[in-house]
Design a binder for these strands. Structure first.
Lengths: 165, 165
DNA sequence: CTATTTTACTTCATTGATGAAATATGAACT
DNA sequence: AGTTCATATTTCATCAATGAAGTAAAATAG
């Protein structure tokens, strides 16, 4: 269906790099499905992707704490949205927000015991679905996919950044 | 960075399928970057992803026309949003909206001559970037990536659908 | 042939994410 | 010390996307 569309297009616009364009569309589609799937699994817990990711990052830190700025980097969210996320998670008692000790501009965000329990409860039931996603993938497939995605990620990063655009 | 986070996590939650979870995160990250990159290229033309995709689908149809419902399917957008998209594109003169002839519930949406010119003007400059994304990918890499992404897409589709959930 | 149900789309209210501006603290300069 | 500049976060206004309810035209049932 997408193949037809792009096939037709490449007949009208012959200089189009059809295979690469197809891969782009594929990536976008799969990425979209995956987000959708994740949102679906998170909905019962009243979390969205960015809130979940924020919580998971806090969970995965030895000391369970970070700052809004750091979390913005790690989650690639804007500071504005991080404020909202923190508000939401604080309201649910999953994290705490406290004035930074050393630099008082920095706000310290820390996952609570309830937050940790919450993660421990909600995450494992997602594992089977994650497994099912990769049904039919052998170890070589997984290694290849990992390698290709990482290379793609690097290329994408360099695309706008590249110290000399 | 992500590797560390997941590495740590899998130490606390040993039943986690770490390689698969990593691939998920990778997919989400790469998908996100790609969306971002696309949004960036579209911004100067005052289009967003869904509007662009809608326009491209119309462009790639032999008769240049469709209906909101069909476009919803193809773009995986909600009907509500399709109304907004159509409004926006009509306002810019890139498409027309007219009452359906046969079935008067169906609205006919058609790309205009101006819309086609617009596409022809804006699309080719994106090609170099698309090429750059796949720098260092040989044909085998591309074939592998295509195959793995399609398999992943199939698995994801079956995940919620599967005729008997 | 009318009454009900279904389909196709639109309108309205709400949510999540963003950009621009405001606030507050710390760092650097003179 | 006092002024200026940079950094960290929040507030406010706006937009895109969604869900729920509304409207209008077909399809179907009685």
């Amino acid at each position: 269906m997408m193949d037809e569309g792009i096939g037709w297009m490449s007949r009208i616009i012959p200089e189009m790099p059809a295979p690469e364009v197809k891969l782009c569309r594929l990536m976008l589609m799969v990425g979209g499905s995956l987000e959708e799937e994740l949102a679906f699994k998170l909905k019962p817990h009243k979390l969205n992707h960015s809130e979940f990711l924020t919580l998971m990052i806090l969970y995965s830190r030895p000391d369970g704490s970070s700052t809004p700025g750091e979390l913005c980097e790690f989650t690639s969210q804007g500071a504005t949205n991080m404020t909202r996320i923190a508000n939401a998670l604080v309201k649910r008692g999953l994290i705490t927000r406290s004035a930074g000790a050393k630099d008082r501009r920095r706000v310290s965000i820390r996952i609570t015991a309830a937050g940790k329990r919450f993660v421990q409860k909600m995450v494992p039931p997602m594992f089977p679905q994650v497994g099912a996603m990769f049904a039919g993938f052998n170890d070589t497939d997984k290694r290849h996919l990992d390698r290709l995605l990482r290379k793609l990620a690097r290329n994408l990063d360099q695309l706008n950044d590249p110290t000399h655009p």
